[in-house]
Amino acid sequence: MERRRSFPDVLAGVVFILIGGAFVAGSLGYELGTPLRMGPGAFPLLVGAVVAALGLAIVVKGLVAGEVIAFGPIPWRAVGVIVLALVFFGFTVRGLGFVPASLVTALLTTVASKRVRPLMAVAVAAGLTLAATLIFVVGLQLRLPLWGPWLGF
């Protein structure tokens, strides 16, 4: 097999090493126990080490004989906007209430697409908010205030 480097392989391996390593480091802070009575740290230590080792193997393989995968472009705008929309929802749904939180989340999300026009974004967001309110609050009796305390109601 010809030698070929694969950036996605190396990146995936590094992700596994980092997460596995973080769990290993964290689990050393808990009691490990004995084989008879394994402490809370033993299992994560073991599995974390396995994940890190597999990550290392993927890096090595990626440097020697990697998989050919097209990494492709990253839609930075979509990533940023969708993250913002979801965090906004989690942060404000209790304070602002269901309707404003949903409306802003939906509006932010529609902007993730490069093809969307402003008027359409507003229409989609309003329609989705109405649909979500009818389905979740009216239909399914979700116990959430429609308008939250931050708005002075």
């Binding site: 969708i82 929309a85 979801l86 965090v87 929802f89 989690g90 942060f91 749904v93 209790r94 949903s102 989340t105 939906a106 999300t109 529609t110 993730a112 697409s113 093809r115 969307v116 359409m120 989609v124 967001a125 989705l128 908010t129 649909a131 979500a132 979740f136 979700l142 116990r143 959430l144």
Partner: peptide, 25 residues
């Protein structure tokens, strides 16, 4: 362009209503 905002919004509402816990979102 209509479909994915719907998925995101319903995902946020659905996971939040699991335990009214923002950490799930």
């Amino acid at each position: 362009q209509v479909l994915f905002p719907m998925i995101i919004l319903f995902a946020a509402i659905g996971t939040y209503s699991l335990g009214f816990n923002a950490y799930d979102v």
